[in-house]
Amino acid sequence: MHEMSLVQALLAQLATLAAEHNKKRVITVTLDIGPLSGVVIDSFQFGFDILSAENSLTREAKLIIINPPATYQCIRCGHRQSSLVRPDHCPECDETLLIPEGGDGIILNQVEME
């Protein structure tokens, strides 16, 4: 349940941003959470619901989570494919060893605040 630590990091970033921009209320928070990030999105949402209710800045904030695909490069022919789930093989040469690239990000993309 390391999602709770990540939610705490998010709330700390939101507090800093609100102070920098003189904002009092977060309306929406948009995050990119990649399929290889090791984050369970339901657990993250659960943690956010609990911790965001603890202060007026984030009490009414809505969380929008985008799940971008990862890229897999074939170790034999170099072919790249994008996918949310790990592909079994390369569609070009049938090789099964594919190296994942990206897809492990947990990125705060944008915040709507007032």
């Binding site: 990540l6 990091a9 998010l10 970033q13 941003l17 921009h21 003189n22 904002k23 009092k24 209320r25 309306i27 995050l31 990000g105 947990i106 990125i107 705060l108 993309n109 944008q110 915040v111 709507e112 605040m113 007032e114």
Partner: peptide
């Protein structure tokens, strides 16, 4: 927290603003 001087009523709307961040939670 708005940019107006301290002495004003607080009924006015603060316009929502979208702030691009693109920073990892880590």
């Amino acid at each position: 927290g708005c940019d107006l001087p301290t002495d004003h009523d607080h009924n006015h709307e603060h316009a929502p603003e979208i702030i691009k961040v693109h920073q990892s939670l880590l």
